[in-house]
Design a binder for these strands. Structure first.
Length: 106
DNA sequence: AAGGTGACCGGCC
DNA sequence: TGGCCGGCCACCT
């Protein structure tokens, strides 16, 4: 396994099913960093260059689109989620608890 | 080489 | 009920 911390985050993010979402903390836990969810967000920032990583499916534990500001427009992230069938209201995912998908630990 | 930052999380006041 | 604070680890300047 490559050691790159980013690669691990990308691997998890790419495993997120269509129409599903997960939280930074869950990914952090999956890769082993656990309490360092901040690193996940940081990694996602770099993932912006990659198209294989659906960063729009990753939100904070609140189900809030905190990272939407990092996308091109202002509502691009929300548009992408809605395009997948995820209902979003005021930058917040509806039924986040239901759509939440827990990544598998490798 | 050291310091600062960050798309977070959890606890405490 | 909501807001503030510290912790955590890797990347950047």
């Amino acid at each position: 396994m490559e050691a790159n911390f980013f690669e691990r985050v990308y691997a998890i993010a790419r495993q997120i099913p269509y129409g599903r979402v997960t939280s930074y903390g869950a990914i952090a836990k999956a890769i082993g960093t656990g309490r360092s969810a901040r690193m996940v967000g940081w990694a996602m920032n770099a993932s912006h260059n990659l198209e294989d990583v659906p960063a729009h499916r990753v939100v904070n534990r609140n189900g809030l689109l905190t990272g939407k500001h990092h996308f091109d427009g202002t509502n691009l992230m929300q548009q992408l989620l809605e395009n997948e069938g995820v209902e979003v209201v005021d930058n917040k995912i509806v039924d986040f608890k239901k759509l939440f998908w827990e990544p598998e630990i490798m």
